[in-house]
Design a protein around this nucleic acid. Sequence first.
DNA 1: CCTACCGATCGGTAGG
DNA 2: CCTACCGATCGGTAGG
Lengths: 205, 205
Amino acid sequence: MARATPEKRRSRTRGQAGNDRRTQIIKVATALFREKGYHVTSLDDIADRIGFTKPAIYYYFKSKEDVLFAIVNSIVDEALERFRAIADGPGSAGERIHALLVEHTRTILRNLDANTVFYNERGLLSPKREKEMRQREREYTEVMRSLYAEGVASGELLDIDPSVATATLLGASIWSYRWFDPKGRLSVDEVAEQIAKLLLNGYRR
Amino acid sequence: MARATPEKRRSRTRGQAGNDRRTQIIKVATALFREKGYHVTSLDDIADRIGFTKPAIYYYFKSKEDVLFAIVNSIVDEALERFRAIADGPGSAGERIHALLVEHTRTILRNLDANTVFYNERGLLSPKREKEMRQREREYTEVMRSLYAEGVASGELLDIDPSVATATLLGASIWSYRWFDPKGRLSVDEVAEQIAKLLLNGYRR
DNA sequence: CCTACCGATCGGTAGG
DNA sequence: CCTACCGATCGGTAGG
């Protein structure tokens, strides 16, 4: 069990190096949490793969949960930002929803590891943090819901319950994280376009 | 290991008692696995809620994973059965897909606890069992995929990749397990109809 | 179906 | 960022 000597202190400034290490821990943890799940992954697993020991992680994070939180938090931040930009942009309600769906799927599929952890493991956060996550997620669900309601009012969109519509459209997009194969024949952009097209037009020709 | 099987016990005076106990363990485990997740739920938690002690569970199950497997397995069985009945029934490809989607959503929402466990925790089964689950799931995905391809060939359905279409339609239906509120204003049937309607027609009026 | 208990794992800390 | 280690939890078993 001789530990692999980690390549110590690259000749860099202290702050930058610390940031790299933190980023590296997050990256490795993200991959492992996705592969095995949060509880099956031990801090030793993470440390081993990086090449140092468990207590090193506590130099950068206060707890295991904090590592998960860092991953989950970055995802929701990113999503919320993109949503607002598109929702506040030009176009009819229907056009903006289309743009939203394409962008949403793209964002998920381009960062599959972190998004998988987000959707699979966020329920394991402390009640307080989980509540906060739900709150921020509701914010961007609400952005789309009000867009949909606007489209129904103007007669542009199918008249069903806007909450059901929003949840269904987003769900169809989100679910791609479970079946998309980065090594498959279709690219992220192709899949994102096809999903959005199907939702816009329906499967009946 | 030289213990009596539950089957032997069942033939006693108490009749279905053994079976009831097993069913009760599954029911309680399903609720707890959904609430807290598989790994956060201990066998003591399950036993406590029923009112006996942990070793009693080992009278009915060989391991904790076997309890999870019993839950997950029943779900995939049920889904596969319903899928085949509808797919082999009457109607055009589009009509059968519609019926499939309504029924699929209904089945999930009527049995939310077990389906939530199925979709959230099945990845925690042993590699062998997980592979088996994936296999059976692919069977019913394939049922729908070939229906979709048939509809594209006949010109009835939107011409996109049948695999993408199938995954997206099913995903939109499945995702309802995450947002449906049994105490909300819409019933299971209403939600199932609205989802299917949206997918059939698209959100653009 | 119970009491009693074991072995292993693991998050986290002390102290350097 | 390391060595050494603790306390608690927990799946599972022995033996009745």
